[in-house]
Design a protein around this nucleic acid. Sequence first.
DNA 1: CCCACGACCTGCTGGC
DNA 2: TGCCAGCAGGTCGTGG
Length: 278
Amino acid sequence: MPELPEVEAVRRSLQPVMEGGRIERVVLRRPDLRAPFPRRFASRVAGQTVRTVNRRGKYLLVELSSGDTLVMHLGMSGSFRVAIVGDERDSLVHDHVVFRMASGATITFNDPRRFGSMQLLSREDLPRHQTLARLGPEPLDREFDGAALARACRRKKTSLKAALSDQRVVAGLGNIYVCEALHRARLLPRRRAGSIATGAGAPRETAHRLAAAIKKVINDALAGAAAEQSDRESASGATRFRVYDREGRRCLRAGCRGIVRRIVQSGRATFFCPVCQK
DNA sequence: CCCACGACCTGCTGGC
DNA sequence: TGCCAGCAGGTCGTGG
């Protein structure tokens, strides 16, 4: 479930095991994920100490003592399993990469669809990574606000759904949280993105409302992802989303009696309430 | 440049 | 019950 909140939960699970520790061994159990592993990938990572485990948008950035950075993306179906010493289990289908730490802990990357990616970038190459370099602001940063969002959407003829899904506009949202944020902001996914920048009457009120909704949705999801780690109950909670995957059911906004609709935009499902979203 | 669309992969679901 | 089409939360390349 890898949008920003889920990737951040993964980062938090990796950090205590990796940061400050030495990666003793890297096992590649197949030659590629989305792309082939580069030559000497495993040997360039093995032996390195992990300086930091960071996140940018949906990317995980593991900075190594050599100066190289391991840039990882979970794609649609990627996940990490952490096992401390004595806790190892048999490997599963689609376990593609195993990192063994000097502590004895193992970190296993599993990815059935193989849309995930791992790259190793030198200090010089990291800033040249085209996708990373063009990533928009982190939604929870101060610099991301209504004005920034309005600027990024200005003159965009595409839909709000497509604009918010564009990682260059804001980093880390995916199909689910885009639907959730637009519902919270009471904006129709099909509405033209540029229209939020030209708020006639109440200048930019719409953009501010949308930026605030994005922050709220991401914050709540981060809290939910944290709770999921400790509390098993909330993991199965089917009520985590207020519109996503709720086609045909009642809108959950207080006082709204709309029925959630599902449409397809640029090939992906969009869920919205036709009554309270304008 | 901007935008929509299909491709990349496997697994699960729901309808027949 | 069994089978198969359709769908899945992301990104990238292409072509208009």
